[in-house]
Design a protein around this nucleic acid. Structure first.
Length: 612
RNA sequence: GCGCCCGUAGCUCAGCAGGAUAGAGCACCAGAUUCCUAAUCUGGGGGCCAUGGGUUCGAAUCCCGUCGGGCGCACCA
């Protein structure tokens, strides 16, 4: 469908004033990490083979990987290049592997190249290469692991976006933490990130909120309101909102018709709820750059513009919805509504953008909202709860359409991903705990954070992949908090810091002077730590911050293991009083491992504590 | 009925854009502390990666079917 002739509305280009943040640039010294260097070496070796005519030019190298083998006995790095390229090159993997091995053997720091298994190339590196990496960590410090892979492109991450009808509860928690950690991760991986919260302040739920507040307002004026009627929010958190309105307006709206106060109360109530939500998020150290209001979006006429544009492209038409299948709806009757042709982009059904009363559906406004967002950034990521999974297709369809994509998968459109975080099953003493905002028996996020702490909540939410359901048992998390992995990781950092303090008191300082004294056990720690930059890039690309948490757990485990060698063998301790040079080198190692832990925890928003 | 997600050790979960012998924690068993923080560590048992096909040099990973669990399925948000 040709839709390039009609330009986008101006507003969609300029739109909201998105704050442009400076892309965080890594300290661009000469310092290169090993992980960044070796894929380049492999590529250069392949170039050399091309130049020599061993392999044809232009082979697709996308599948070539350079990574540490799972089994350390296989060396320090392995590449599958020969296996992947053998077929397109029309060569026996073995022949190609041998040729590549000869090239890679010339790379400085490579001591051995072995062809193994079906055609893996296993590289062994000199200790000096790893010691250089250690120096690189020291040089880069807080920037170690930072990547430029994102190329400075701007990514908008929308997360939380809870309805402003009450405080944050535990159901919101996972998306909040995952979204926030992802935003940090993307920043670290070289993107400019906008953290955005979409405020659904225009729908029916906020009218309910306004009415609920009106009740509290009358209550504050001395009226006996009794039980909060069915259909209104019963939570106590609305009491102070009602009181504030009573103080400000006295009895003016007590008996007035709804039309006189609804809009006012809605505005006030939403503002109060947003303040509450911001405070709740602050407890988790979550701070959005931008709160976008659905009501303002509508007031500014954005949905109309989107509709007009879509109609001009025959992507919105007036039609009838099909009756729902597979379940009977009592009072279903066909109506004609403006429908977006989401089926053209892979959805099962065309979707209404306005209700029969002419007002916007959630989707109609959301579509315009995404139109806005897409206009000013390079890529969009939404973090949604799995209960909204059913609406993913339509919004993806909308973004594809509005950003000029074509085909069932929106090819050519603005990159847009919806990451679903699965439900958190709240448990109490092994029993499921049902929450309902309407019933008012929900567990607030604030309560839980106060109980177990920000770090526990954040880390716990990041210790499984987002697309798996999880249980969150209060009793377990509170009681067994010492078994919580977050302490294990924090402890590693605290131990390191503590050791450095103690060493300083005894006159020792980290020093790169005697690094060659470090042995295999120490180098194993370096090798594990050196994977951090690689991990950051992979986690960012997959939009999976939980990988950082698992990596840190592994790194902490390796550190604790090494530490305990010193229990039986005093000569393995960090501080070896009679050998200042060795002590300096080990402290240097410890310091760098601590730095990596700290950098990783920073991405997760967890404190790297000095002591425990 | 349809769509999306999940199914890996007794339990809770990892498994790095398919890669070499599938890992960790908890629980269970046996050990380590006059010593840099034992909130730690060492060792042991325990798996048909739900299941049946397919793709290929190679599958827990990708594709299809089946079974089991979760979420959603008119104008709600």
């Amino acid at each position: 469908m040709p839709c390039k002739a009609v330009p986008l509305p101006e507003q969609a280009r300029g739109g909201f004033p998105y704050p442009r943040k400076q892309a965080n640039r890594a300290a661009m010294t000469e310092t290169t990490t090993l992980h960044a260097a070796f894929p380049g070496h492999v590529a250069a070796a392949l170039d050399a083979l091309e130049a020599a005519g061993t392999i044809p030019a232009g082979l697709p190298r996308g599948a070539v990987a350079v990574e540490p083998p799972r089994d350390p006995a296989h060396g320090d790095l392995a590449t599958n290049a020969a296996m992947v390229l053998a077929k397109p090159a029309g060569l026996n993997p073995r022949v190609l592997a041998d040729a590549l091995a000869a090239e890679l053997g010339k790379v400085p720091g490579v001591t051995a190249v072995e062809v193994a298994g079906p055609g893996f190339l296993n590289l062994r590196l000199t200790d000096a290469v790893w010691l250089d990496e250690l120096r690189a960590i020291a040089a880069l410090a807080g920037a170690y692991g930072r990547s430029t892979k994102g190329g400075g492109t701007t990514v908008n991450v929308e997360y939380v976006s809870a309805n402003p009808t009450g405080p944050m509860h535990m159901g919101h928690c996972r998306g909040a933490v995952v979204g926030d950690a992802l935003a940090s991760l993307l920043e670290f991986a070289g993107h400019t990130v906008i953290r955005e919260y979409y405020v659904n302040d225009a729908g029916g739920q906020v009218d309910v909120l306004a009415r609920s507040v009106h009740l509290r307002y009358r209550e504050a004026l001395g009226e006996a309101v009794g039980e909060v009627p069915e259909g209104l929010y019963p939570g106590d958190y609305l009491v102070p909102v009602g009181q504030a309105l009573a103080e400000e307006f006295g009895g003016t709206y007590a008996a007035a018709p709804e039309s006189e106060w609804l809009a006012l109360f809605r505005t006030r109530a939403v503002a109060a709820m947003l303040e509450m939500i911001k405070a709740d998020l602050a407890r988790l150290d979550i701070h959005h750059d931008l709160f976008s209001s659905e009501a303002e979006l509508q007031a500014a006429g954005k949905p109309q513009e989107a509709e007009a544009w879509l109609r001009a492209h025959d992507l919105v038409y007036d039609g009838q919805l099909e009756a729902p299948k597979g379940k009977t709806v009592e009072d279903w009757e066909p109506v004609e509504l403006p429908l977006f042709r989401s089926t053209r982009f892979g959805d099962d059904q065309d979707r209404p953008i306005r209700k029969s009363d002419g007002s916007w559906t959630y989707f109609g406004a959301d579509l315009a909202y995404h139109f806005q967002k897409a206009a000013s950034v390079d890529a969009l990521v939404d973090i949604w709860g799995a209960d909204h999974a059913g609406t993913v297709k339509r919004i993806k369809a909308a973004v594809a359409a509005l950003t000029q994509g074509h085909g069932p998968k929106g090819e050519g459109s603005k990159p847009f991903e919806v990451k679903l975080v699965q439900m958190v099953q709240l448990m109490k003493g092994g029993q499921p705990f049902k929450m309902s905002k309407r019933a008012g028996n929900f567990v607030t996020l604030a309560d839980v954070v106060d109980m177990v702490g920000k770090d526990v909540v954040r880390f716990t939410m990041l210790t499984r992949k987002p697309d798996a359901q999880m249980d969150f048992d209060f009793d377990k998390v509170v009681e067994a908090s010492k078994d919580n992995p977050v302490f294990y990781v924090q402890y590693a950092h605290a131990r390191i810091r503590s050791t450095l303090r103690k060493a300083a008191a005894e006159g020792f300082a980290p020093s790169a002077e005697g690094l060659e004294l470090l042995g295999d056990e120490e180098l194993a720690l370096v090798k594990l730590g050196a994977q951090f930059p690689r991990l950051v890039e992979a986690a960012a690309a997959a939009r999976e911050p939980h990988r950082v948490a698992f990596f840190l757990y592994d790194l902490a485990g390796a550190f604790h293991s090494y530490w305990n060698l010193g229990n039986d063998k005093p000569e393995k301790r960090f501080i070896v009083a009679q050998d200042a040079k060795l002590t300096g080198a080990r402290l240097y190692l410890a310091s760098q491992i601590g730095q990596i832990v700290k950098n990783g925890l920073a991405l997760l928003g967890v404190e790297a504590v000095e002591e425990m």
